[in-house]
Nucleic acid binder design. Structure first.
Length: 261
DNA sequence: ATGTCCACTAGGAGTGGA
């Protein structure tokens, strides 16, 4: 089974690009972030043509998450309890993967924080606290939590290396929130499979960051132990951060994880 | 180089966000 997460930076702007990627990579389940559209305007027909059903939690202009799946699924949780005012940022579904209980699949678009001085920064930390509290009761033996976390887990995951320490995305306070989530029994599946590899998932559009190799790994696929044991491959789909057939890419690359069975 | 891209409001180019 092939799972992926992708911050598409605008569904309307990215639809044709996404078609190319889906046809090429053929993932089974994809968590999408930053749709920037309402549920009413989600292009279900375009994905149905490619064999995917979608469940969505959108909003006008900003944020918005969805899950695409070739397997049957149903919505379990729409929005992070207590944090609804911070935008549409969480969606949990149950995927019918043939197992008795199914696969619980959550995708998140975590707050950016803007700057260390901005009110959104402590609000980001509080949002993560709410996420951890929610997961304490919601997690199951087979759970995936994927999305744009807007946190760099380790200096290896930043183009700045240790020089980035303490900056936004790189603070001890943010990492403490990520650690709390990991401590619930969720492993970073890319890092689990590739202990020493540097592979970024986001590069700023500005300043030629992609070609300068100035990226960050902030898009993560976390999984419970039984899923971590099944990982056969995990990587960033860096080619799809590049223009394809004249179509503009998102500033995030997809992250793909393959499980046996 | 804060050098790009997206969505919105407008009915063209500026604004805010990442």
């Amino acid at each position: 089974m092939k799972l992926a997460t992708w911050n598409v930076n605008g569904m309307k702007a990215r639809l044709e690009f996404m078609r190319l990627w889906l046809a090429d990579r053929a993932p089974d389940v994809v968590g999408l972030q930053e749709l920037k559209l309402t549920d009413d305007s989600f292009p279900h027909d375009a994905f149905a043509e490619l064999g995917y059903r979608a469940l969505t939690h959108g909003q006008k202009s900003w944020n918005g998450v969805a899950v695409l799946s070739r397997l049957p699924m149903e919505a379990v949780q729409v929005g992070l309890p207590g944090q609804e005012a911070f935008g549409s940022r969480l969606l949990t579904v149950r995927i019918d993967d043939g197992s008795a209980d199914g696969l619980q699949f959550t995708t998140v678009y975590c707050p950016n924080g803007k700057t260390l001085e901005h009110a959104d920064y402590p609000a980001k930390l509080a949002w993560f606290d709410s996420l951890a509290e929610h997961l304490e009761t919601a997690l199951e033996p087979s759970s995936i939590l994927c999305g744009d976390f807007n946190i760099v887990p380790d200096p290896l995951d930043s183009w700045m290396g240790t020089d980035g320490e303490g900056r936004l995305f790189h603070t001890a306070a943010e990492r403490a929130r990520l650690s709390r989530i990991n401590d619930l029994g969720l492993a970073d599946l890319f890092r689990h499979r590739n202990p020493d590899t540097q592979a970024f998932s986001w590069w700023d559009y500005r300043g030629g960051a992609f070609h300068r190799k100035q990226g960050l790994r902030i898009d993560l696929v976390l999984g419970t132990a039984d899923l971590a044991a099944r990982v056969t491959e995990a990587g960033t789909d860096r080619d799809y951060r590049k223009k394809q057939e004249g179509l503009t890419a998102s500033d995030h690359a997809p992250v793909i994880v393959e499980l046996d069975g």
